[in-house]
């Protein structure tokens, strides 16, 4: 089969999920919205993270990328048999590049019922300002 694959590469099957999982970690990109806040001095970020407990949630900022990671707190007990699945077990991961356009020090975040709401203040240089005319 290996030989056949080398001759006819298109006969190669896609990797099975088990093989893929052994490679880089599987994560799920959560649903989110980012919208300007009412006074245009900040953005409001809403991320939907069902099944994530506060302890399993981390927000980090590194090199202009804001990363939100949520581990699912619930694990299937061993004696439960799965009959039907639509959700995933993989952790949520959302990486947003902001290139210094937000003031990371002043980010405020709240988390309730699986929804993360964060206020991302714009960096001082980007805030709308009025220039007085003499």
């Amino acid at each position: 089969m290996t030989l056949l694959n080398s001759i006819l590469p298109f006969t190669k099957r896609p990797q099975s999920p088990a093989v893929r999982e052994a490679g880089p970690e599987t994560t799920v990109r959560p649903h989110y919205t980012a919208a300007p806040a009412d006074d245009a001095s900040a953005w409001t970020l809403t991320v939907s993270l069902p099944g994530v407990a506060k302890e399993g949630l981390s927000i980090t900022d590194e090199a202009g990328v804001l990363t939100i990671r949520g581990e699912r707190s619930w694990k299937r007990p061993e004696d439960w048999t799965t009959l039907h699945r639509e959700s995933a077990d993989a952790p949520f991961l959302l990486a947003l590049r902001h290139d210094g356009e937000i003031d990371v020090e002043k980010i405020k975040a709240g988390f309730a019922d699986g929804i993360l709401t964060a206020t991302l203040p714009k960096a001082e240089a980007l805030k709308p300002r009025k220039i007085a005319i003499n």
């Binding site: 939907s48 069902p50 299937r76 004696d79 439960w80 699945r85 959700s87 699986g114």
Partner: peptide, 30 residues
């Protein structure tokens, strides 16, 4: 938007000896 607006939400179904369990992801719903 951040949510599925198609009126559906993910459902999981499990069972053990004594119970059947239905788990639904409903973030942000009171």
């Amino acid at each position: 938007g951040p949510f599925n607006t198609d009126g559906l939400f993910p459902l999981d179904i499990y069972e053990d000896e004594g119970n059947t369990y239905v788990r639904a992801e409903l973030p942000g719903v009171d």
